[in-house]
Amino acid sequence: MTTSAKASAAVHVQAAVAAYAQALDADRIDDLVELFWPDGVAEITGVGTFEGHDAIRAGYAGFSPAQPQLHLVANTVVTSAIDDEATAVSNLAFFQRDDTGWAVRLVGRYDDVLRRRDGEWRFQRRVTTFQP
């Protein structure tokens, strides 16, 4: 893959990562599901593995926020970009707001595989792991 093609993939990866966090925090599950290919996989370590749109929708429906929340995703690095596939890793911090203000509830990491089909990039696999 050329440097410009890798840079283009990186832009699309960054956009998907950001759109995922925004949709999750706003409880827009249908928007989140559309970021995955129909045969995509969302794996949340310690919670479950959700394969396909219906399973992803059902799995994330259980995460509807009871209070304001914010996923901050940082340090996203595209680790490979070959033809129509890119892999990336990102750090995340999850905040929730309660009566005392905002607090970090957990930190973790996303390991992603994104694929391009018909010019569109979506998650093929997203693995979320949490740090102790």
Rank of each mutant, 00 (worst) to 15 (best):
P68E: 01
I44W: 09
Y60N: 04
R126K: 12
V104F: 02
N91H: 04
A9E: 08
D30P: 10
E120G: 01
V77Y: 03
G101K: 02
V11G: 12
D112Y: 04
F123H: 05
F95L: 15
A15W: 15
D39P: 00
E120T: 12
V33A: 10
T128E: 05
D54W: 00
H71W: 04
G46N: 01
V113Y: 03
L32N: 03
G101Q: 01
F95Q: 08
V17W: 01
G46S: 08
K6C: 13
T129E: 09
A9I: 06
E34Y: 04
L35C: 10
G40C: 11
T129A: 12
R122C: 01
N75Q: 11
A61Y: 00
L92E: 03
I82L: 13
P132E: 04
M1P: 00
V113H: 09
R57C: 02
R122P: 04
E120Y: 02
F36H: 15
P38L: 15
A16L: 14
L32E: 09
V113N: 02
R105V: 07
H53P: 05
T3V: 13
V127H: 05
L114P: 07
R57A: 07
V33Y: 06
G62L: 08
A5M: 14
D83F: 04
A26K: 10
F36D: 14
F63H: 14
N75T: 11
D99I: 03
P132Q: 06
F50Y: 14
S8R: 10
R109T: 11
F123I: 06
D111L: 11
L114I: 02
A7H: 13
E85Q: 12
L24P: 00
T128D: 04
G40D: 11
F50E: 12
Q131K: 04
P68G: 01
W121L: 12
S8Q: 12
I56N: 08
A7Y: 12
R97L: 01
L24M: 10
A21M: 15
G48P: 14
F50W: 11
Q22N: 13
T129W: 02
D99H: 10
P38A: 14
R109M: 12
A93C: 14
A74V: 10
L106P: 00
F95Y: 14
A16D: 08
F36Q: 07
L106I: 04
T2P: 08
H12A: 15
V107D: 00
V127Y: 00
S80E: 14
S4E: 10
